Computed example of a mutant assay.
Amino acid sequence: MAAVVQGDQGPREPWLASFLKAEGQAWLFVAKAMLALYLALWLAMWLQLEKPSTTILTVAIVMHPQSGMVLAKSFYRALGTCIGSIFGLALMALVPQQRELFLAGLSLWVALCAGGATLYRGFMAYGFVLAGYSAAIVVLPAINNPIAVFDSAVMRVSEVLLGIAVAGLVSDTVWPERLSAMLRRSAREQFAHFLDFARSSIDTEMARTDVEQAYLRFVRSAVQLENWRAAVVFEDPERHSSRSRRYRLAM
Score class of each variant (00 low, 15 high):
residue 41 L to P: 00
residue 203 D to Y: 09
residue 28 L to N: 14
residue 65 P to H: 05
residue 100 E to Q: 14
residue 144 N to A: 15
residue 141 P to Q: 11
residue 226 E to P: 01
residue 57 L to A: 13
residue 153 A to F: 03
residue 44 A to Q: 03
residue 172 D to M: 09
residue 232 V to I: 14
residue 89 L to G: 04
residue 219 V to C: 07
residue 152 S to F: 03
residue 166 V to T: 01
residue 67 S to Y: 01
residue 249 L to I: 12
residue 223 V to R: 15
residue 26 A to K: 15
residue 43 L to W: 06
residue 44 A to H: 03
residue 36 A to D: 05
residue 193 H to P: 00
residue 10 G to L: 15
residue 146 P to I: 04
residue 64 H to D: 06
residue 174 V to R: 06
residue 85 S to V: 02
residue 230 A to Y: 03
residue 45 M to E: 13
residue 234 F to I: 06
residue 231 A to S: 11
residue 129 V to P: 00
residue 103 L to M: 15
residue 57 L to W: 15
residue 141 P to C: 11
residue 169 L to T: 06
residue 86 I to W: 11
residue 13 E to F: 14
residue 148 A to Y: 03
residue 146 P to W: 05
residue 94 L to K: 10
residue 110 V to M: 11
residue 47 L to R: 04
residue 117 A to V: 04
residue 183 L to E: 03
residue 135 A to F: 04
residue 170 V to L: 06
residue 179 L to M: 07
residue 194 F to E: 05
residue 54 T to L: 10
residue 51 K to Q: 15
residue 22 A to P: 05
residue 9 Q to F: 13
residue 118 T to V: 08
residue 153 A to K: 02
residue 99 R to A: 11
residue 88 G to H: 02
residue 215 Y to R: 14
residue 89 L to Y: 07
residue 30 V to D: 10
residue 30 V to E: 06
residue 27 W to F: 14
residue 133 Y to V: 10
residue 148 A to F: 02
residue 84 G to I: 01
residue 105 G to M: 04
